[in-house]
Simulated assay, not measured.
Amino acid sequence: MTTEQERTAMGGAHRFVGLAESLERHAGTPTGAEPPNVRGSNRGYGLVFFHQAEHHLSTVISSGLRFQPLGAEPAQELACTVYKEQAEAARHLVDLTAELLVRERTYLVPDQIVPNEAPLLPGTEFHGVLASGHPLFPAEFTRFTDAEGVEQLQVFTLLPVTLGELNYILDEGVTALRQQWARFEVDVFDLGRPSVA
Score class of each variant (00 low, 15 high):
residue 30 P to G: 10
residue 97 T to K: 01
residue 64 G to M: 03
residue 92 H to K: 11
residue 104 E to N: 10
residue 73 E to L: 04
residue 70 L to Q: 00
residue 88 E to W: 14
residue 121 L to Y: 00
residue 33 A to T: 12
residue 39 R to W: 13
residue 95 D to T: 14
residue 28 G to H: 12
residue 28 G to A: 14
residue 124 T to C: 04
residue 132 S to E: 00
residue 66 R to Q: 04
residue 57 L to M: 10
residue 54 E to H: 05
residue 36 P to N: 14
residue 121 L to K: 04
residue 52 Q to V: 07
residue 76 Q to I: 10
residue 109 V to F: 13
residue 43 R to K: 12
residue 119 P to D: 05
residue 97 T to W: 08
residue 82 V to C: 07
residue 89 A to Q: 14
residue 126 F to C: 01
residue 33 A to K: 13
residue 103 R to F: 11
residue 66 R to F: 05
residue 31 T to L: 12
residue 42 N to K: 09
residue 55 H to G: 03
residue 92 H to N: 12
residue 42 N to C: 09
residue 133 G to F: 00
residue 31 T to V: 15
residue 27 A to H: 12
residue 69 P to S: 00
residue 43 R to I: 11
residue 57 L to F: 10
residue 56 H to Y: 00
residue 78 L to R: 04
residue 54 E to I: 06
residue 111 D to T: 04
residue 109 V to C: 14
residue 32 G to P: 07
residue 116 N to H: 08
residue 112 Q to K: 13
residue 124 T to D: 01
residue 39 R to S: 07
residue 77 E to N: 02
residue 92 H to C: 08
residue 23 L to K: 07
residue 65 L to Y: 00
residue 18 G to I: 15
residue 46 G to V: 10
residue 128 G to M: 03
residue 108 L to S: 12
residue 23 L to P: 02
residue 126 F to D: 04
residue 69 P to C: 00
residue 115 P to E: 09
residue 37 N to E: 13
residue 31 T to Y: 14
residue 27 A to K: 06
residue 32 G to Y: 15
residue 34 E to H: 15
residue 37 N to Y: 11
residue 106 T to Q: 11
residue 37 N to I: 10
residue 25 R to Y: 15
residue 67 F to R: 07
residue 98 A to R: 04
residue 121 L to Q: 00
residue 58 S to W: 08
residue 94 V to F: 09
residue 49 F to S: 07
residue 130 L to R: 01
residue 63 S to I: 00
residue 116 N to F: 05
residue 117 E to H: 12
residue 29 T to Q: 13
residue 27 A to W: 15
residue 119 P to K: 02
residue 47 L to F: 09
residue 73 E to S: 03
residue 93 L to Q: 05
residue 47 L to W: 09
residue 21 E to C: 09
residue 72 A to E: 04
residue 60 V to H: 03
residue 50 F to H: 07
residue 60 V to I: 05
residue 70 L to V: 03
residue 42 N to W: 09
residue 131 A to K: 02
residue 48 V to W: 03
residue 118 A to M: 07
residue 100 L to G: 15
residue 120 L to I: 01
residue 109 V to N: 13
residue 77 E to M: 01
residue 87 A to L: 15
residue 114 V to P: 03
residue 70 L to K: 01
residue 123 G to Y: 06
residue 21 E to A: 14
residue 54 E to K: 08
residue 73 E to T: 05
residue 55 H to W: 10
residue 48 V to G: 02
residue 42 N to E: 12
residue 80 C to R: 04
residue 126 F to P: 01
residue 58 S to H: 10
residue 49 F to L: 06
